[in-house]
Design a protein around this nucleic acid. Structure first.
Lengths: 280, 280
DNA sequence: CGTTCTATTGACTCGATTCAAACTAAGTGG
DNA sequence: CCACTTAGTTTGAATCGAGTCAATAGAACG
């Protein structure tokens, strides 16, 4: 149940493979079965019948832990299974020699590589942001379940389409907003997505990212990310200490970010989320 | 067979609905049946059996023409059919009060709103870049065809996944490349995508876009886009006159753009494309 | 308790936007 | 056919957001 013996470690832009020396901080196992994370997520965006729920529960899922900054699935490889985030955060990224771009973040319940069901060759990598628990579902039984259960197929297709909708919004965010707005937008999105699956505590996000991660996601320098974060703090919009971000003024944050949750295509908004966002 | 009586006309950032006064320049009809465009495209990325081809040919497709800068499908509306680009270029865009972001371009054979099959509410608009011929396929018969023909279903799902892969690359492009590289990348991508469906003529792209369109796609000012284009011309990479872009030095363009066609997930490269790109 | 990340600060440079204005090409109406 | 209008392209100068380089301060870990 432990991670691999060697893992990719990022060090000032370079990627080295070094033996694992540190002990793994094993995060808490998600409550209940791994499949419940997926079902919770799917219920946010579509109807899931009990029959479909049973099909999902019967899927073989092998659970695995990752330490921080490990590569879960690597760019260029062919995937033979889909991974389901159970706990922690996963980043999708493309890394060139010097530049790293985080394309999107994934939270528990997401299947970041559902695309491999029909595009097995990975055109990007999946890496862990902080320690992460991931469930792997082999393609064959998943394909079998899909052909047997059209509702599940449509739910998964829908998931991949929402993933694309998030990418579209990210393009807009990068293309036409300036630094402060870009970071604010990421915060808004993660708040709503975490809230949707019931993982918001106390109006705040516990994301084990570094300011460099934020920078790589929003297309800026770590130094500039730092200044943007200070700006957000100064405006009193958030409290941002280390890996803990607390939303102080949601409405203003939304305004700065030009955020609207439409593109997330949520069917229902959880009570916790309603409280924070005022959405319904 | 003509477009609507009124259409959206963009004028210095504002959007006005004015009566159509100008005569429509009706583009040439695509050769053969509308469905052949789709089949040609699908064959670029997946295998299409004759049975599936027959299913596609039987789909009801109503053809419609659009003049330049018309809204084909509008953000916020619920779509009840998918549109298939038959001739010309379509842009996917999100427009706020002042800012316009082109999220992606579509070429003949593409289905820009296949996502509406499972996310009927449009979170963006589709507009015409120059005059365009579009085929509309109602959702119901399409859904029926999908449940009857798994191969078509998987082909379409695959198409939506490639659409997402293009968005991922676009995020990288916007996030970490500077102006010249961004524009060069768009050119490389369109060259390969047009070449794949056999629509490259003479190493050059006939795209009826304005420099403002290029700017909105690459996240910059029209003025800066102009300077970037001049830069590309000066370096001898392209000849860019009006709506006609000719690729002069493909290898250097690829290098400037940091372009690699992997993310387009093409199964085969057409002969014309091989000639220009040296790919296989 | 030192090593290694991570966060922070300052000064300088550069890419990109803004504002203003001129110039070209194309379409319209008299 | 020419004058007029409008969209689109091009140019210049001033300004600003963001990157770069360099260096320090704090936090986490073995």
């Amino acid at each position: 149940m432990l991670g691999p013996d060697r893992f990719m470690w990022r060090n000032s832009g370079h990627i080295l493979s070094i033996p694992r020396l540190r002990s793994l901080r094993v995060p808490d196992m998600p409550s209940g079965l791994p499949s419940s994370r997926l079902i919770t997520r799917l219920r946010c965006v579509t109807d899931v019948s009990e029959e479909t729920e049973r099909v999902i529960t019967r899927l073989p899922i092998s659970v695995r832990n990752y330490a921080s900054s490990e590569v879960i699935v690597e760019q260029g490889t062919k995937a033979s299974c889909c991974c389901l985030v159970l706990d922690g955060f996963v980043a999708r990224e493309k890394t060139n020699t010097s530049d790293r771009q985080i394309i999107s973040f994934y939270v528990p319940g997401d299947i970041p590589d559902a695309n491999t069901l029909h595009l097995s060759k990975m055109d990007h990598s999946l890496t862990s942001i902080g320690s992460v628990v991931v469930g792997f579902i082999p393609h064959e039984p998943l394909h079998a379940a899909l052909s047997q259960c059209p509702e599940l197929l449509h739910a998964l297709w829908r998931e991949t389409l929402i993933d694309a909708a998030i990418l579209r919004q990210w393009v807009v965010n990068l293309g036409q907003q300036e630094g402060v707005a870009r970071v604010a937008h990421v915060l808004c999105e993660l708040t709503v997505r975490l809230g949707a699956v019931g993982l918001l505590r106390n109006d705040s996000l516990s994301i084990p990212w570094t300011q460099a991660d934020v920078a790589h996601a929003t297309g800026m320098t770590a130094i500039h990310a730092n200044r943007v974060i200070q700006d957000l703090r100064l405006r009193g919009l958030v409290e941002w200490g280390g890996k803990h971000v607390k939303i102080i003024r949601w409405e203003q944050l939304v305004q700065v970010a030009s955020f609207s949750a439409d593109y997330l295509h949520l069917k229902r908004i959880s009570p916790v989320l309603q409280h924070i966002t005022g959405l319904s």
